[in-house]
Design a protein around this nucleic acid. Sequence first.
DNA 1: TAATATTATGAACACTGTTCAGACCTGGAC
DNA 2: GTCCAGGTCTGAACAGTGTTCATAATATTA
Lengths: 225, 225
Amino acid sequence: MGIKERQGRDREAVRRAILDAARDLFVSEGFQNVSIRKIADRIEYSPAALYGYFPSKDDLFFALAEEGFRLLFGKPSSVEPAQALPPLERIRTIFWRLYQFSCDHPQYFALMFLDRSVPRINREYERFAFAREMRALLVAQVQHCIDEGVFPSTVPPMVAFRVLTSGLLGVASMRLSDRLAPGENAGDLARDVLDVSIAGLQSGVALRSTTTGYSVDEEPNVQAS
Amino acid sequence: MGIKERQGRDREAVRRAILDAARDLFVSEGFQNVSIRKIADRIEYSPAALYGYFPSKDDLFFALAEEGFRLLFGKPSSVEPAQALPPLERIRTIFWRLYQFSCDHPQYFALMFLDRSVPRINREYERFAFAREMRALLVAQVQHCIDEGVFPSTVPPMVAFRVLTSGLLGVASMRLSDRLAPGENAGDLARDVLDVSIAGLQSGVALRSTTTGYSVDEEPNVQAS
DNA sequence: TAATATTATGAACACTGTTCAGACCTGGAC
DNA sequence: GTCCAGGTCTGAACAGTGTTCATAATATTA
């Protein structure tokens, strides 16, 4: 009685084919230039067929964003290899990977962190399992730095995470939207932003952000532990 | 023989009407939802008429971005009022205005600094007189901080400018794309990013960015003066 | 008044995301 | 084998998009 199973597999195969075609187009031509018709053409289905698998284009790209998070934090994880390093080098490496990711997979990066044109990603960002996991992972690394005395204990890990992320996000955004002058090296700038942020966090400057409301499921916030 | 002049004025008036209608729609409904037809409807012209004034939608939004820079740096300038403050407070205020602008005029901000979907803005960003002027203005303020000894003289002003901008751009981007968890205060975060960046720059951490290629017309770069 | 620029228009083209009635095929029941 | 139900796929259509172009209307010049 494996018929239902086979049907299920068939369905999943088509779903994957759609996602693969969408990814190819989206990586090579950019998010804006992927149309349902182009995807359908590529897998030799009619455009309407896709709506049997994804309720809308929005949901298709939501699924693609999930794939992006898998790419960044799946196995082989882009965090794991850093586990052997000392705490500070570890977070430097991990956050640097974030910038690298924006270079290696600009379309994915934009979809996951920058783009404002996929409503569902914005709306349900918090329900994004991978986004939450990623945050928990990085916040835990910052916490480790605090435990080891590399960062002052007055720094809420969530805030440090946000500060580090903001800077790199800004650099990546400028690079991807060509807002840097010719001759400016985005990579060098990213490193500087990272180093300056780390130095700033270590300096013990007073922070305004409270951690109230920051609920990172697996990583309950210990303010000024 | 003021006919040519009147014709020119008439033309300019229609051009303005188009830009005004575009701005209204774009501020209230967002960049993506402004169509040539909606603009044309609003000024009671046919859609095709707009092409006598702007070669393409791209150019229309390019003009709108220019308007955004005027809004941010025109008179009354968002920089001027800070001239009385001590150097550090001055740059804190000026850069804070940048974040404020992203709250007060999110659509303009996105168009000017974030969006990747108006090719001409990306392509010609360097030819953007206002973008260059803004950069020169802010870089000059950083230079002043260096001259006054608030920042180490090893900090190239252009790099400090980029570091400060990156962080705030990142926060604004996260806020505008709803990437912050409920309960996180973007304003507090922006202040923290600013303070951390400033503290980091003051700490004398080694920077990687060279200033080669940074040509800010009115503000020639003095590396490690 | 007649010729000439300038400007605005309607219609069309080639796209876009999405919906829906109908065709098609498969699986299970009799 | 026959019949029906379920799911899947399709073609056609709808309403929208940016853009182009021949044509019409208007205003300026001669």
